[in-house]
Amino acid sequence: MALQVVEHEEAGGHGAEEGISNVILGMILFICSEVMFFAGLFAAYFNVRANAPIWPPEGNEHFHVANEIALPLIITTLLIISSFTCQLGVWSIRKGDRQGLVRNIAVTLVLGVIFLLGQGYDYTQLGFTLADGTFGTTFFTLTGFHGAHVLGGVIMLSVVLYRSMAGQFSSKHHDMVEAVSLYWHFVDVVWIVLFSLLYLVPSAN
């Protein structure tokens, strides 16, 4: 019997015509590994926090003063909004609306950059550094690596924006948009956990 050759209309390789695309599955797996990376950092945070007699340790009590939370709250809101605009972009291109994609990705990109600038400014306003006890170490490591991931997302969004403006995506061909939006949602979710942990309940015990 001759081999049943499945004709591929698109250059996606074996099986690409059915189910999830290689690119999106690859991104989901990458996000799994990123979850485990942050799990390691969170484990460290909870470990030193559980071992501390009081938390935040002496010298860091001023951290959760109300006026210091205003800026983080604003940039958090912007980052959450950016997840929605990113998804609006995905929905646009699924319907073939290239203008909508460009518009929404541009807004997402701007919001991401504002978040990074806001966080950078916030760093300069905090009265402690990475070397100031375990609080400073965990705070700057967690938020710093999250910031690095936002920067990575911003770079990916820039590529998506460039390619959208060049008209390279269509309702059928936009795996990269889907994959980058998944990554952006992941970065957003990590921040919501981090923000709750570090800013909203820094002294739950």
Binding site: L29, V35, V48, T141
Partner: peptide
């Protein structure tokens, strides 16, 4: 590899921060 290696990455980064940036993990 996918689920375990990133945890080593986080541990190595913490060790690097401790050694070079004054961290206290």
């Amino acid at each position: 590899v996918l689920m375990a290696t990133p945890v080593l990455t986080s541990a190595l980064i913490m060790l690097f921060i401790d050694r070079n940036l004054g961290g206290h993990f």
